[in-house]
Design a protein around this nucleic acid. Structure first.
Lengths: 345, 345
DNA sequence: GTGAAAGCGCTAACAC
DNA sequence: GTGTTAGCGCTTTCAC
C-alpha cells in the first residue's frame, strides 16, 4: 500500500534541471517547450503528483471550502451540498463537511476553528443565530457565506429565500381551493426557519381579504415524528382544520400520517402542503404539494458568492435571494398532475 | 473580515521566549509550568491558533479523511456518512466529500488524485469495480477502506454486508405470507449492489423448498423513476406477481407507485419489500417493509477500520461484515392502519 | 528546561 | 529561459 510519493526535487534531478524550472514546467508559466516536455516525462516516470500541503503552505490557499450544517442527514442540506459541490468541484475546490451543532454557541465555536486555516472559506447554515455568532462570523479569518437569513446589512454575504412569502403562497393556494380552517404546523420558533415561516403565516392571515379560521401548532423539531405529534393536536381541535400548511416537507408528511390515523382522507378532508420540495415529498403517496425554496440553487448561489470572495475577500458583502415556487400536487388537489403555481417572487 | 492570523513566531516574541519553547508549551511536552503559563497568556492575547497547513507539512498528517461516493444525494450514502462523521470527528478528523462518478474508470481516476496528499485516507463506495480499480486501490499512497464488497483477499480493508442473504430473507418473508408469484425488481447488474442482490435472489429461488413462480425485471438505475418503469413491466406480465422484492427502497417505492397506477392495493394485491431501510421508507405510506443493511453501522465500522490504518498503515487488511435485518411493516403486512382504497389517487 | 537551526514540499522573486 | 535561493508555519532533533 505504501509507495512513497515522489517529490518535486526528485523530478528535477531526474530531468536534470533546476527545481524552479521543474515547478514552472509543471504548473507555472514561462518555460520552453523543450523544458516542459522533459520535465513532464520525468514526472510521469516517477508518478509524480504535486503535494497539496506544500503547495497550500506556499500559496496560502488550501483549495478547500467548508460546508457546515446542524445535521448532514437532513435531505434539504444534502440537496444544498449537491449544489455547492457542483459549482465548486470544477474550480478545484474540495468540500469539507462540518457540523455546527444545534445552538448558536456551538456554531460560534465552529467559526473560531476557522483560525486553524484549513479551509479558504466556509458556507454555513446556522440553525439558530445570536449576536455573538454574527460577530464571530464578521471576524472570521476567511470569507463566510451564510445561507438562511439575509445578513448583508451586517456586512456578511448571504443567500436567502423568502420562505415567509412561500408560506403565504401555500396559504393562498389552500384558500383558493375553498378551504376555510387553515392550520399552520410550524417547527421551533427560535430557529431561523421557524421564525420566518411564522412571520409568513401571520402576515398571510392578517391580510384584509383573509377570512378563514386559523390554528397554529409548533412541533418540537422539523421531523416527521414531531410533525405527527403536533398534527394530532391540530386535528383534534374542535374546529378541525380542512387544510394544514406545514413549515417543511417532513412536518407535512407527519401531518398526513396523523390524518390517516384519524381516518381522514388527504386531500379530501384535509389538504396538506409542505415546504422545501424534497425528493421525499415528490415521491410520497400522495405526492406532496410543496413550496420549493430552490435548495440546489441556494447551494449553487452560495458557492458562486464564495468563489467571488476567494478572489477578493474584502469585496462588499453581497446578498442573493433565491425565488420560491409552489408545486401543486396530490396532497392538495385530487389527481393533480404536477403543475406549477406562480412564482412567489 | 480579514484579521491577519497570528503566527507562532509572534507568540514567541510576545512571550519573550524561543520558538521551540513556544511550540512545546502549546502542543508538545517537556516545558516548565511557568513557561506554559507564559506562552498560553501570549497566545491568548494574540488570539493565536495553530496553522493547520504548517502543522500538516511538518507532521505529514492532514487530519482529513476523504469519503467518496457516486452520488452524495443518495440517502443511503448520507446515512453512511453520518456514521463516518460520528466516529471520525471526535478524533479530530475532518471529512472531505468527493465524487467517484459512475464508472470504475472515474473511480480509479479519483484514487490517483490521492497522490496529492490532501487526506490521510479514503473511505470509498465504488458503484462499479474492475481489475484496474482494484489495482489502483491496492497501490494507493494512503490507507483505503472500501465499503461494499469484501476485498480483504486482495489485501484491501473492507466493510461488507450480506445483501444476498438480505434478499433471501425478503423472499422468504413474502413466501411465508403465502405469496406465490415473486417478482424481483433489481437495479443495473453491472453494479456491485446489483450483482450481489441478483445472486441473492437466484440462490433463494433455487432452494429445494421454493415452489413459487418468479419474474425478474432490471431497472435502468436505483431510482424511483426507473423503479416505476420497470415495475410496470413486472405488473403487466400475464402472471402478475403478488409480491415484489425490490433491490432498494427507492425501487420499492417505484413499485408501489406502479401498483397504484393499476389500481392494485399494497399489500393486499401486491406485497412490496425494499432494502436499505431508509428513513424515506420508514415514513412512506404504506410504511415500507425493508431489509436493513446497517448503513450507519457500516459507516462507523469503516471509520474505525480507518482509524486503525492511520496508526499502522501496513497492518494486515481487515474485513468487517455488518449484519442485515428485516423490518416488517405495512407494505407486506396489513396492519391496523392500512389503506382501504382511500388513497389520494 | 530552554534555545538555535534544520527542513517538511512547494513557488516566486531575483539574478543571470 | 533558466538557475539560485528565500521562506510559507510548524515541529523536532541537537546542543547547552
Amino acid at each position: 500500500m505504501t509507495s512513497t510519493r515522489a517529490t518535486l526535487i526528485q523530478v528535477a534531478e531526474r530531468a536534470g534541471v533546476s527545481l524552479a524550472s521543474t515547478s514552472r514546467a509543471l504548473h507555472g508559466t514561462g518555460a520552453s517547450k523543450a523544458m516542459v516536455e522533459r520535465v513532464r516525462a520525468a514526472a510521469a516516470e516517477l508518478g509524480y503528483s504535486a503535494d497539496a500541503i506544500g503547495r497550500s503552505l506556499r500559496l496560502k490557499k488550501t483549495s478547500q471550502i467548508a460546508f457546515a450544517v446542524a445535521d448532514i442527514g437532513n435531505p434539504v442540506y444534502v440537496e444544498i451540498m449537491r449544489g455547492i459541490h457542483e459549482v465548486l468541484a470544477p474550480h478545484g475546490y474540495r468540500v469539507v463537511v462540518m457540523s455546527t451543532g444545534d445552538t448558536a454557541a456551538s456554531t460560534a465555536e465552529l467559526m473560531r476553528s476557522l483560525h486553524g486555516g484549513f479551509v479558504d472559506g466556509m458556507i454555513v447554515i446556522p440553525l439558530r443565530t445570536d449576536d455573538e455568532l454574527i460577530e464571530q462570523i464578521g471576524q472570521a479569518p476567511v470569507p463566510v457565506v451564510v445561507i438562511g437569513r439575509a445578513m448583508s446589512d451586517r456586512g456578511i454575504s448571504s443567500v436567502s429565500t423568502d420562505s415567509a412569502a412561500g408560506i403565504g403562497a401555500a396559504v393562498q393556494h389552500v384558500v383558493s381551493l375553498g378551504r376555510r380552517r387553515i392550520g399552520f404546523l410550524n417547527g421551533p420558533l427560535d430557529t431561523t426557519p421557524g421564525s420566518s415561516r411564522q412571520r409568513g403565516f401571520d402576515e398571510a392571515v392578517s391580510a384584509k381579504d383573509f377570512t378563514a379560521g386559523t390554528a397554529v401548532e409548533v412541533a418540537a423539531d422539523f421531523t416527521v415524528a414531531a410533525g405527527i405529534e403536533a398534527a394530532r393536536k391540530l386535528l383534534d381541535r374542535p374546529q378541525r382544520p380542512d387544510a394544514i400548511v406545514a413549515a417543511n416537507d417532513l412536518l407535512a408528511i407527519g401531518a398526513i400520517r396523523a390524518a390517516r390515523e384519524r381516518g381522514l382522507s388527504v386531500p379530501r378532508d384535509v389538504a396538506v402542503t409542505g415546504m422545501d420540495d424534497t425528493e421525499l415529498g415528490q415521491v410520497f403517496l400522495p405526492r406532496l404539494t410543496s413550496v420549493s425554496l430552490g435548495s440546489a440553487e441556494r447551494g449553487r448561489a452560495a458557492a458562486r458568492l464564495m468563489l467571488g470572495l476567494t478572489e477578493d475577500a474584502d469585496a462588499p458583502a453581497q446578498q442573493i435571494s433565491v425565488g420560491t415556487e409552489l408545486f401543486v400536487r396530490e396532497s392538495t388537489q385530487d389527481s393533480a398532475m404536477d403543475q406549477k403555481g406562480e412564482d412567489a417572487e
